[in-house]
């Protein structure tokens, strides 16, 4: 530590000697004052003129252009957004009406379909009823016919039997009345 201090002191003196050799302030020497002021005025005037006439307008123009562009773009974006919002509302309305219409169409068509089905059903039912009726009628007719035939055959058989037994023709009207009576009884039974 002591050594370092000594070295520092010695070096300070040494350096002091170096500085002493070029002591004094050249700034206060008036020899080149006029020259410095002269060249300063010339060079600074040149810079000032160039900056004022060329560079400042350029930079300002650049910044202004950018600001205008940004402002314009923002305005455009705003307009577009408003338009988009309007369109969205229209679109929503469209979707709403469309869904309503489609619901209506679905309900209408299902109603119509039901009606159609009902109509067809009725028609078919009617037809079936008709056919049933005609079939029944036919059956009835057949039945009646067959009864009549059975009656006639019975009458014939009875007449033949009576003839065979008694050897003479029976009372025809009496026979037919009896047969009919019996058949009626049987018919009721069936």
């Amino acid at each position: 530590m002591k050594k370092l201090t000594i070295v520092l002191i010695i070096s300070t003196f040494y350096c002091g000697n170096i500085f002493a050799a070029e002591a004094g302030m050249p700034q206060l020497d008036p020899k080149y004052w006029a020259s410095q002021a002269f060249w300063l005025i010339i060079i600074f005037s040149t810079i000032y003129l160039l900056i004022d006439k060329v560079f400042i307008p350029k930079i300002k123009g650049n910044i202004d252009t950018r600001e205008n562009k940004i402002r314009k773009d923002l305005e455009e974006a705003k307009i577009f957004r408003e338009e988009a919002e309007k369109k969205l509302i229209i679109y929503k309305k469209l979707i709403q009406t469309a869904s309503q219409e489609s619901k209506k169409i679905v309900s209408d068509s299902s109603q119509k379909l039901n009606e159609d089905i009902q109509n067809k059903k009725n028609e078919i039912q009617n037809q079936i009823d008709k056919e049933l009726k005609s079939a029944e009628n036919e059956i009835m007719k057949f039945k009646k016919d067959s009864f009549d035939k059975v009656g006639k055959i019975s009458e014939d058989i009875v007449t033949e039997v009576i003839k065979d037994i008694f050897g003479e023709d029976g009372n025809k009207s009496k026979i037919s009345a009896t047969v009919n009576e019996i058949l009626k009884k049987e018919n009721v039974k069936v």
Binding site: Y32, A34, S35, F38, W39
Partner: peptide, 14 residues
């Protein structure tokens, strides 16, 4: 009468 020589100061201004 004024010394308006180009100096190193002028050079660094330039």
């Amino acid at each position: 009468g004024f010394d308006l020589s180009f100096t190193n100061s002028s050079l660094f201004m330039v």
